[in-house]
């Protein structure tokens, strides 16, 4: 399948670097990135486009800003072989989000999560959800509401009863 796509690419004016084909991605805010096909196909969505021969011209990546797309590409480069990240690598990646309480880091993770979801990048999604889980596991219910921007829909009585029922989970 990929042979057909490569042959087709030369006729449609797509760039190639050696034998590796380059794909052109355009972010929501108009930034353009050239990425090796072998790397970009870590995205199931992009791989589908390549397989269906729909990746011959610029691929618009709606909903993802240039800043986030650059982070995604950095992730792709780190995982070029396409192998699932090992534990050490995961820890390294997670350490970026050690200060996830910081609003700008939180925004980064949010943007990455949304991009990983939109582009369907299982390894990145796995990594980001793990990082968020790690960051929130010790949090209180109030901190959780703040973190995920959730309004409690319990009335006071309901919440008290529920808390009583699971009192042990609130103790250290």
């Amino acid at each position: 399948m990929s042979t057909a796509a490569t042959a087709d690419a030369s006729s449609s004016g797509d760039t190639t670097e050696g034998s590796v084909r380059l794909l052109t991605l355009q972010s929501e805010d108009g930034e353009v990135f050239e990425v090796k096909e072998t790397i970009a196909t870590q995205s199931v969505t992009i791989k589908g486009m390549v397989d269906d021969d729909c990746a011959t011209s610029t691929i618009p990546v709606c909903n993802v800003t240039g800043r986030t797309l650059a982070m995604v590409i950095e992730w792709w480069n780190k995982h070029e072989i396409g192998a699932v990240s090992n534990e050490k690598e995961l820890k390294e990646w997670e350490s970026q989000f050690d200060t996830i309480d910081d609003k700008s880091d939180r925004d980064d993770v949010y943007d990455l999560l949304m991009a990983a979801n939109y582009l369907n990048i299982p390894t990145l999604l796995d990594c980001c959800t793990s990082a968020v889980a790690e960051a929130i596991k010790g949090k209180s219910t109030d901190e959780m509401r703040e973190f995920f921007d959730i309004k409690s829909d319990f009335d006071e009585k309901e919440e008290d009863a529920l808390r009583k029922e699971n009192q042990w989970a609130f103790e250290n």
Binding site: I136, S152, N166
Partner: peptide
Amino acid sequence: EEIVVDILSRLPVKTLMRFKCVCK
């Protein structure tokens, strides 16, 4: 929602028992 479910499924049981009180 599927991302929230994914994140929550990675938490320890004790944390989840506490997070039952976050919202309905």
